[in-house]
Structures are given as C-alpha cells and as structure tokens.
Amino acid sequence: MTHAVNLDAVGRTALVTAAMRAAETSRPDAIHRDPYAAALAGDLGQQLLAELLAAVSQAGPSDRPAGSMPGAAGAGSGRRAVNAIRTRFFDDYLRAAVTQDGLRQVVVVGAGMDSRAYRMRWPDAVRYFEVDQATVLDYKRECLAAESPLADHRWVPVDLAEPSWPEALEDAGFDPALPSAWLLEGLLFYLPEPAVHRVLGQVAELAAPGSRIAADLVNAAALTMPAQQAMLEVFASWGCPWLFGCDEPEKLFARHGFAADVVQPGEPGADFDRWPDPVPPRDLPGLYRVFLATGLRH
C-alpha cells in the first residue's frame, strides 16, 4: 500500500495544495470545488498546511509587501486566496482550450494532486495525461481507486529530471502532430533556471502549432525579500526550496515559442471576487508577485 510518507519533498507540497483546495471547497462561496481534495491531502497534507500558515502568519502586516496578500484577511487567508484563484483560473483555461477545434490532448506536467480528470466534464475523445513521479501517481491512483475519470485518462510515471520524459509521454499515447493544452501548475519555482528552460523547450518541441500552455510563476524578488523569508524557510526545511523567479514571463515564454498573456491575482480575469486589494502596477519594484500565464504556440 502506498502512503503519503513515501512522497519526496516536492511530492508532499502537492498535499499542501490539495489541503488548500479542500479548504476552498468547504466554503459556501467557493470559486472552485474539488470533492477529492480532502482525501488526496490526507492528515499529512493538513499538518503541512498548518505548519506553513503558522509560519506565514508570524509576518506582521507591516512586514508584508503591499499588494501581496489581502490585508484584511491576513497572510494565511491570502495564501489560500492565491491557490483558489490559481486553481479556478487554470480550470477555466482548460475548459476553454478543449473547445478549440481538434484540441483533444491535455498534458499536466508535474501533476501532483490534480484531480481535474475526475472532477471536470470533458468533451468526447479528450486524452488527459498526467506526468509526475511514480510515487506521486501511485499515491493518487490509490486514493482515487474507487472513482472513474471523466476523460481518457493516462498516467505517465516519470521524473521530469529524466531527459526522456517526452518519450514516456508519447509511449502513453500522446501525439505531437496534434494540438495540445499544457499545464505547469505549482512547478516552475521549484526548478533551477536551466531546468525551467529545458522543460519549456521540451514542451515546445512536443506542442504542435495551435497548442496552448499555462503556468504560474513568481517574480525574482519573491525569492529574496525579507517579508517572504518565513514562508521560504518552511519550504527549504521540507527539502524543496524555491529556486526560480522571473520578472518578465512574457519574454520567458516567447523564448520557447509561445505568445503569452500574463495576469496577477486580482487583475481582470484572475479575481473571482476573492482578491480585495488593489494590484500594484508591474513596474513598481520590491513587491512579491504571482504571475498566471497562458500562451499560444506560434
């Protein structure tokens, strides 16, 4: 029997994300609903989330960067708001992507505890690929053993550190000649910069013209600013420090062949009545920022 304790550091962060999704699902005004999140998070996910939120809450309002968290709700609630907005934003992205003629392949890279194959309705013939370490996918498969996916669901158990992961994806039935929708959620800031470019380059090679991509990133200041240190120290203590920040995500995706639109939580299209504070302009330095990017393959 596979247990969450067998997950590595990055795998365990997926349990934290699931715990946040479970908390959002329990709200009467939830902006997304994930009926599988609580089971996927398990007791360990709830414990890790409590540890993270306790550390974040120790940063007083004067220590938090303006615009980085909803001030009235507090730092812990703000972090959950980012996760809820991100989840809903990418739900909407995928729903829209598969309405495109001929786009029937969805690939989630670093899938973690993503349950969209089970909780969202999909058009006929959609193949939904989840790429992640075998231990992560085995744990999730066990948690969801009694459930049926709502798409042609394909597990791709391979570590992204393996250069051959695209071959494993093709072996699972992915066709690089056909357009596809890619999602890299909660992934890029855990990778060193060379690995970010390697993974995006591999995605670009697999993505036929007309394919789409979506990812979340943080800015460079998020890795160094004092107000973030309490949170960053928790991730580092778990063995999964944040390694990559980017101030110009549009240029990052353009380098790899995608024309990207980028929004921050709280801006039009990424608010969902959950982000009460004004969003500072992009040219205002020294603030923690989260970017939600969606792009089209040239």
Rank of each mutant, 00 (worst) to 15 (best):
P281R: 12
A38N: 12
D114A: 03
A151H: 00
Q133G: 01
L137P: 10
K251F: 06
L44P: 02
P149R: 03
L200E: 11
R127T: 10
P123W: 08
D159K: 04
R119G: 02
A254P: 02
L284G: 01
F174N: 07
T87F: 05
V98N: 09
W242M: 14
V131A: 04
C246E: 13
T2C: 05
L52V: 08
A54K: 10
D171R: 14
P192M: 11
P157I: 13
A168N: 01
V126Q: 04
A111H: 04
R33D: 09
P241I: 04
Y93F: 15
L53S: 04
Q202N: 12
G239C: 09
M225L: 15
D152Y: 01
L150W: 04
L94C: 14
D171N: 11
L252I: 09
W122Q: 06
P265C: 08
V126T: 09
F272M: 07
V131P: 00
V262I: 06
A22Q: 14
G245N: 01
L188Q: 02
L206S: 11
A204G: 12
P249S: 07
G67Y: 01
H3S: 15
L184V: 08
G78K: 01
H256K: 02
P280N: 02
D92S: 10
G210D: 08
K140D: 05
R21I: 02
L103V: 15
D159W: 08
V218D: 00
D277G: 06
P192F: 14
